[in-house]
Design a protein around this nucleic acid. Structure first.
Length: 275
DNA sequence: AGCTGTGTTGCCCT
DNA sequence: CAGGGCAACACAGC
């Protein structure tokens, strides 16, 4: 379940491993995964050099020579890896980029939910969720004024608010729960009832949490692995996610798990009281 | 065999 | 229009 820290970790791995390489050939084994349709996707990428790899929210943006951009979203279980060309394909290797150094960049996705969209440079922000994506969660882009306005001008459960990529880019189920615990806000607290102090703390918690998670190279739960096949370590610093029944790190009360916005939601019933 | 989980879109309902 | 509920996508693991 790659969220911003995991996608950023993947991006950094890809920059180190494939930036500057040229794609000799692309093989699409699951055509539904790519846009435009596979034969065109394959033809356009032939002989393209990978100039840079950027990120916006949970989206990866591959910049190619010839003014092409590939927008890649890993959804739940998408993974990139770089391996020797002789390595047999895995069952869930769906797109293979053969590079000019004898290696393959392979996209593996058990659930086949990930998508790659190849467009002309300048058109990438028109794709799917990028059209409506909210600010990156950095102090410069996620201002206190913006956050206060968005929270106050609607009545939404806080978990649902934090998961909404058009409000803030990059948070997913794990970090939404963690950020709410750090801020001592109940997941179902309604957005327009937060105090100024709570909003400030929430904003600082978002920066602190994502910063620490990126530093730890992301969280490894279930199936997530980095681009180089190594696991992140932030799961060791989680305070609530997947800790139902275990004592709260602040007060010792047992962490509870409920369903909010159709998602498993973890919180401390003592620290995060619904008002 | 049926349920769950995970991100996102899109549709339905209030 | 706003916001929540839920199905769909696809699969492994229980």
């Amino acid at each position: 379940m790659p969220e911003l820290p995991e996608v950023e970790t993947v991006r950094r791995g890809l920059v180190a491993l494939v930036k500057g390489r040229t794609i000799e050939r692309v093989i699409v084994r699951y055509p539904k995964m790519v846009t435009p349709e596979a034969p065109i996707f394959v033809e356009k990428l032939k002989n393209q050099k990978i100039i840079d790899i950027k990120r916006r929210g949970k989206y990866l943006l591959f910049n190619f020579s010839d003014d092409l951009v590939m927008v890649s979203h890993l959804r739940m279980e998408g993974k990139y890896s770089v391996v020797g060309r002789q390595e047999p394909y895995g069952k869930h290797d769906h797109v293979i980029f053969e590079l000019d150094n004898g290696q393959d960049l392979r996209y593996n996705d058990t659930r086949k939910f990930g998508r790659m969209n190849l467009v002309s440079a300048g058109e990438e922000m028109q794709i799917g969720g990028l059209k409506t994506i909210g600010p990156e969660p950095t102090p410069e882009t996620l201002t206190l004024e913006y956050l206060t306005h968005q929270l106050r001008s609607r009545k939404r459960g806080m978990k649902s608010f934090l998961l909404d990529q058009s409000m803030i880019a990059g948070l997913g189920n794990i970090y939404a729960d963690e950020v709410l615990w750090l801020s001592k806000i109940h997941p179902q607290q309604v957005s327009n009832t937060l105090t100024n102090e709570e909003i400030k703390l929430l904003r600082e918690s978002i920066f602190a949490e994502l910063g620490k998670a990126i530093e730890a190279k992301g969280t490894t739960v279930f199936s997530y692995l980095n681009a180089d096949g190594h696991a992140g370590s932030f799961q060791n610093q989680l305070n609530v996610y997947h800790r139902q029944g275990l004592p709260c790190h602040r007060c010792g009360t047992l962490i509870e798990r409920i369903k909010v916005a159709q998602r498993g939601t973890h919180f401390c019933p003592h620290c995060q009281v619904l008002r």
